[in-house]
């Protein structure tokens, strides 16, 4: 059995009351927590201690705690999700990754596209709006043909699956010095562009989603690759190249 060690850390966390308010850092010392505690559980412990002291707890988004819902969104020690080698979300980060006595700085996603709601909770509804602009195939419920009527080569299906793995957490935007949402948009466009079901609307989709992305004020991609370096689901900028291709093709055909 591997026995857990206990460590003590200082959490330096961002407090902000609303999108327009000025924020600041608070600190809290966490003593002797087992290192097999997850980082979010450590924050739970911190909040319990804050509540006990009669203070307001630190607000952050989290939900499934299995790395799939995309809700958690903390910028930890200078990287989104506190980047581990393999690629994981904030909720999959464990205290054994930190050193005893370390100060852990926790910040919200900082981007004009994601205004802060409170503390480290940000508003990512812009992503929904981009999907609403065209991130789908238009089909009516119950009218689809037999699933095996369209054969899809395994390679294409697998690649589409990789693109579809995006959890919409927004780490790409948070890490990008341009506040660009290209990795997110391109992953959706790629998934559907790779599958025969998505082809009929491919041109329309690429144009509509890029237009919406621009309208919402996300930045222009300058290929710095910061997004793919921090993506917890290992989306790559090959998707961005595909989006560019789909978009240019669509525009040239207009």
């Amino acid at each position: 059995m591997i026995m857990a060690k206990n460590i003590s850390v200082t959490i330096k966390f961002w407090k902000q009351n609303g999108p327009k308010e000025k924020g600041h850092f608070d600190t809290h010392e966490l003593k002797n927590i087992p290192d097999d505690t997850s980082f979010l559980e450590a924050l739970d412990i911190m909040n319990e201690e804050l509540i006990e002291a009669g203070k307001e707890p630190f607000v952050f988004d989290h939900d499934c705690r299995e790395g799939i819902c995309g809700m958690c969104s903390l910028y930890i020690n200078g990287t989104p999700h506190g980047k581990t080698e393999r690629g994981a979300t904030t909720c999959q980060l464990y205290m054994r990754r930190f050193k005893n006595g370390e100060t852990i700085t926790v910040e919200p996603w900082r981007s004009a596209g994601f205004p802060v709601i409170k503390d480290c909770m940000v508003d990512r509804s812009a992503f929904d709006k981009i999907i609403q602009a065209g991130g789908y195939t238009t089909i009516r419920t119950g009218q689809a043909q037999d699933a095996n009527a369209i054969l899809i080569p395994k390679q294409d299906a697998d690649e589409a699956m990789d693109c579809a793995s995006c959890i919409g957490c927004g780490a790409c935007v948070a890490a990008c010095k341009n506040g660009s949402a290209m990795l997110f948009v391109s992953s959706k466009v790629s998934q559907l562009a790779l599958l025969p079901q998505g082809r009929p609307e491919a041109a329309k989709r690429a144009k509509a989603m890029v237009a919406k992305m621009d309208e919402l004020g996300f930045g222009n991609c300058t290929n710095t690759r910061a997004c793919e370096a921090v993506c917890p689901k290992n989306e790559t900028i090959a998707n961005i190249a595909r989006l560019n291709r789909e978009f240019i093709k669509a525009k040239l055909a207009d």
């Binding site: 900082r110 981007s111 004009a112």
Partner: peptide
């Protein structure tokens, strides 16, 4: 033009800690 737009998209708050990755 691109740089000005990107600056605006980035927002006004900067990160306290920023690590270059990978």
């Amino acid at each position: 033009i691109l740089t000005l737009q990107n600056k605006r998209a980035r927002g006004t708050d900067n990160y306290e800690v920023s690590t270059k990755t990978n």
